[in-house]
Each structure stands twice: as C-alpha cells, then as structure tokens.
Design a protein around this nucleic acid. Structure first.
Lengths: 268, 268
DNA sequence: GAGTGGTCTAGACCACAGA
DNA sequence: CTGTGGTCTAGACCACTCG
C-alpha cells in the first residue's frame, strides 16, 4: 500500500491534501490568522503519514497561503494583496494629493493597514551592484553612487525592500543624500534639481529570494519575489535606478500607458 | 548521522545540493540542454540519499532551471529569457515595422527561435470567465463575448497562453471574429472599426498553474506563471480584455510610460 | 523488461519557541 | 523540558519511456 495515486487530477497524496487544505482556507474553515492543527493531528484527520502532511503544507507555504512558525505552528496568512499602480506612483497629482506621503503609504493605508519603513543611507561603487543597474547608470568601477535602502512594512510585516541608486555627482549636496528626502519623495527632489524625470521604465522578473532577502522579508526559499528594476530618465539620461523586491504572493502590479495614438510621435 | 545541517547558510542538505547543482549549471558544467546524471549517480557523487537528490532537483525544477522527463532523465533548460515590452507591443510604428507580424513573433525571433501559435475561436458568456474580466467588460450572464484563444510556442516549446475576450456586439461581422485577424493584429482591427485604443492597462499577478494550464504549458505545479490582465480602452470603454499566462521563469516584462510632466494633464 | 523519476512510509534526530 | 515543525534515511512500489 505504498506510492500510487487516486486519479490523474491529483497525481499525489500530498497535493491532494494541499488541495483540500487550500479549499478549507478559501471557504473560511480556517480564516486569516487561524492556527491550523498540528501536523500529527492533520495526519490523523486525513489518514496520512506526517511526512505527507508536511509536504502538503510546504506547497501552501510556497503559495504564500500559510505562515509556518517553527516550534509554534502553522497559521493562515493575514495580509491581503497589496496593489501597486506604477503610473499613479509617479504622477504629480497623486504625489501631492496624499499630503506629501509616498506612494507606499497610500497603498498600505488603502488596505486599512499601517505603513512603516526604515531607511538606511550609504554609498558604493559599481562593483557590488547588479549588472543591469551598473549598465543603465553607466557606472564604472570608480563612480560612486548614493544608496537609499528602504525596508517597508505593513502592520509590522515586511512587504518590500526598495533600494535606490543615484550617481553621487547628482545626489551630493542635495536632500537626496539625506535621511529625509522631503515631501513628495525623491522624484520631487529630482525635479527641484532641474532633472525632471520625463520617462520611467520598469523591468519585472521573478526569482527566489537570496538568503539575506529571505531573512529580511521573512520568506521561505520556496517562495518567489518580484524584482522590479525601476529607472527614471531625464531625457536620455538615467538619473536614478531603484530595485524593488516584493514577495510575489503579497503584491499585484498595475501599469497604465497610452498607445501611440495618444502620444506626440503619433502620425495618424 | 541523521538530520542536522552544515551551517546557517544552508539549512538543509537538499538545499546545499541544489545550490551546488545550480552553480554547476551556471558555470557551464552542465550547459543548456545537457542531461544530468541520474539521481542514483548524483546520490553517489554527493554522498547523499537519493531522496535528498530528488528533493534538490525539485528545487531547480521549481526555478525553471531544469526540465525533468520521467523515464528519461533531467535536462538543463534550453530557452533563454523572453523579453516582453508592453509599450512597443502596442505602438503603431512597431506593429507596422515588423511586416504585419505580431509582437510575439518579434519577441521570439529576437532570440533566434522560431515562433508558432495555434488559434482557437469560440464564444461564451460571462459565467465561465474570471471575475476581473467580467467586471472590466461590464458583462452580465447573457452578454456574449468572442473568445480568441492562442497557445504560443518558441521552437515548439509552449511559452504563453493568451486569451482575448471581445464583446460580440463589437466583434461580430468583423475580422475580429475570424480565424485570420489580418496584419497588425487585433489592435489594428479595432482602429479600423473606429475604436482606437488610446489607453492600455495591465495588471500582473503570480500564481501556480491550474491543471489544464500546467498540461498545456508543460509546467510543474511548483512553478509559477505570470497572469497579465490586459485591457484596451477606447475612451472610458473597455473594448477588449486579454489574459496572458506565461511561465514566470521564461519571461521578463518591461513597461515604459511618461511621467505627468510629459502628459496633457500636466500642470507644471 | 529495463531504466529513470515520483512518492510514500516509519522511524529517528535536529532546531526553535515557550513555560 | 515539552511541543511543533524540518529533514534525513532506506526501502518499497508506482508510472512513464523506450527498445
């Protein structure tokens, strides 16, 4: 009575268990924040080996549906999905509308949660940066960049790491190199410097977290994060690059853009 | 000699094995398309149990680094990352530049691969559609929509499912309801109808594939796909919604948009 | 049928949390 | 010290591929 499968839909017992638990989470049997029975009890309930249950819970963990606390138990995830609208983040109206708070604050408050963020300032050269950041900022081994490293929380749960890189030649002597970048965020500061960002590009990839990122964001290695490389352009010059790391299961990303019929280069 | 860990970086043996194999894939020890040794041999090589090796390979599978073919062996993934630029896809210049071929063709040919796609036409009512599609197209239980379902391949490897929904009231009697939607893709057809899409919104989420999607895209349930809900707006009316499903490890998504300083509603 | 991966089991030991 | 999850093992059986 080993191995085997029930049908083609559920190739394995642990996936079948995962499916059943997932359904129970969705239908409210186990609501947000609820503590699931311990694995041994689930094993008895489903008449499976504990190993099978453990594997099933790993599936749900990878999907971000549960949070497993070693030594304590397995809980249903609390956070709703956070919506990030890229366009409105960099829209002047929006920036001023929310009273000088950043876009992140708005996103989190929209969910009735409390935003918080920790900022660390630093500087470095291209050696230790991701290749694409180096490339877009035209860095060589010597050029220094100011690093603004932010860890963002919603109700004390870490939901994003955002690291901005600004060439020191631009940032030095401005609020960009200071702890408090002032109302409206750094985009407004660039405008003050005469470096109005007219164009934004964002490149999205998905990958597992590195060890340090997993620690900071309290993620399992089986979970995935969005890596968004955000670049602000003043003309053809990249004046700022920011890498956003967000647990994929917590976020939904939205983009909005005009087609060429609506742009200056439209011909018809 | 059971359990245990080597250090805090590699909490478990299977992850350590995964790390070593990942490194070997990156450094070319096992190049694209290469066949890895069978699990039993890897077990001997790393002096681990086969179960541990199997678990390590599952990690790499979930990351999309290997393709496991039951009964045959485990191979290093061949496909490079495909780049999708949302803005240029819907730019008239680009559409005409590539000789009437769609954006997908361009994306795949840019990698030296051969694109192919299968189109299935159908129609349905809102009942069976995703909630967000129903909502944006203002569908009720009766309104019919034309469904254009495409499965796209690169060198015969499935890399995307794109399903477009167009209200029948718009599509009927036009090429939109036909097998061949004509040069420039359906966006050009909308323009012909006087429904020039002036604005696009795309909403991105990550999730595991459903069973049928996993089969079509040859994905493991542990892998993830991007779900991009693309909506074309003519004024305030959504004239088309397309759901793009793409294995996350195969794709990189790029967006480009002007800041308000560059838009008609700019005040300063 | 032989070869390869997929999974299950049952028991054991480790690591972290908390009283 | 107890409770909970994390992992490893060794063996066994199943499923898919190919000759």
């Amino acid at each position: 009575m080993l191995g085997g499968m029930t049908n083609s839909r559920n190739p394995s017992r642990y996936r079948a268990v995962a499916d059943r638990l997932r359904a129970q989470i969705r239908d409210g049997t186990y609501g947000p924040g609820a503590l699931l029975p311990r694995e041994e009890d689930l094993a008895a309930e489903f008449d499976e080996d504990r190993g099978t249950i453990n594997r099933a819970l790993k599936v749900l963990l990878a999907e971000g549906l549960v949070v497993i606390k070693r030594g304590k138990g397995t809980y249903v995830t609390k956070i709703p999905v956070i919506h990030r609208n890229a366009a409105s983040r960099y829209n002047k109206d929006s920036r001023e509308r929310n009273g000088g708070r950043g876009a992140f604050d708005t996103e989190i408050r929209a969910l009735g949660m409390t935003p918080r963020s920790d900022l660390t300032l630093g500087r470095t050269t291209g050696d230790q940066l991701d290749d694409d950041v180096v490339e877009v900022l035209l860095l060589d081994g010597h050029t220094e960049v100011v690093v603004r490293h932010r860890v963002m929380y919603a109700d004390d749960i870490p939901v994003q790491i955002a690291t901005s890189y600004i060439p020191a030649s631009i940032a030095d002597g401005t609020p960009l190199a200071e702890q408090d970048s002032g109302p409206g965020g750094i985009v407004s500061r660039f405008a003050d410097l005469g470096l109005t960002q007219t164009r934004i590009t964002e490149t999205i990839t998905i990958r597992p977290p590195h060890d340090d990122e997993a620690r900071t964001l309290k993620m399992s290695p089986d979970q995935r994060l969005y890596r968004v490389l955000h670049v602000g352009w003043a003309g053809d010059r990249a004046v700022e690059a920011t890498v956003h790391l967000m647990p994929a299961h917590h976020w939904e990303l939205e983009y909005e853009f005009p087609t060429d019929a609506d742009r200056e280069d439209a011909t018809g």
